[in-house]
Amino acid sequence: MPVRGSRGGTYLDQQTLVAAGAPAPGSFEGNGRGSHLLGGQRAAAVSTVSTVVFIGGVIALFVFAPGAAAVRHTFFNPQQMKQAFLGDPSKGLYSVGKGLILNIEMFLIAEVLILFFALVIAVLRQLRNPVLFPFRMLAVVYTDVFRGVPLIIVIYGIGFGAPALYIRGVSTQSDFVYGIVALVLSYSAYVAEVYRAGINSVHQSQVAAARSLGLSQWKSLRFVVLPQAVRTVIPPLLNDFISLQKDTALVSTLGAVIEANRAAQIDSSTLFVYSSYTVAALLFLCLTIPLARFTDRLIARDVSRRMAGGATVR
């Protein structure tokens, strides 16, 4: 991590100078600007050196570790990586690239459904209408349960449980559908809580102002509270979606297990090409890193806007 800003610079400055046997910290207060400039350069140099050393260490570990050659052979085999990326139907190999497109489709469909269901749940938990009491209880139980159960168990539960029920229309869906259902069930519970935090962050005086105009509880929520809440929770929501993007990969375990059952007649060594995991990991990073940077930018914008608007009473 590069050290930025004058304070960081000065701090590092003192550390390094003291370590090098320089005079006590108080004595270079008089240096003023000069010491700051020096601190900036020095910080940059230090961070560069430390980065090089760190990366070098990792590479060395990779090259000189006892099992390094075997790892390179299994996980970074260029031939296999290429094959994994393109697929080889004649050998029964799926293309990781194609699989990823499937994942993106799943992600996009799941995301829309999650945004909707989570909002419904969050709103249900907020409305105080006594008629809605059973739904409110249901929403509470639902969020408690699905935030507690690991996603992989939900995926197995739906993916293997639903077909086992032999219900028309339910038990005959594809893994694609089961996967989406599992993702939506699991993630809606988290996202509902994010929404709820957003709703609670809207000050009570806003509700009072809305209600005093004669807006019903629902209309106050709809026109005054939710628009403000959604704005605040966009960055944390994006964060959850980065995590959703990569968790779609877990759905493929449904396929893998089914494949494994069939594996008797196929040579299992061709089925498990570990380099394909590396390819998949790299492709996932290509998707999630831009999303992560985008989230960072939104957060930064939000922070600066809050600083600017901080002086006014809301």
Partner: peptide, 25 residues
Amino acid sequence: IVFQSFNLFPHMTVLRNITLGPIRV
């Protein structure tokens, strides 16, 4: 009712603030 701390809706323009009640209520 008018409050000490104004409590205008920050996500709406002035005109929207004052037409919300008439339109929705």
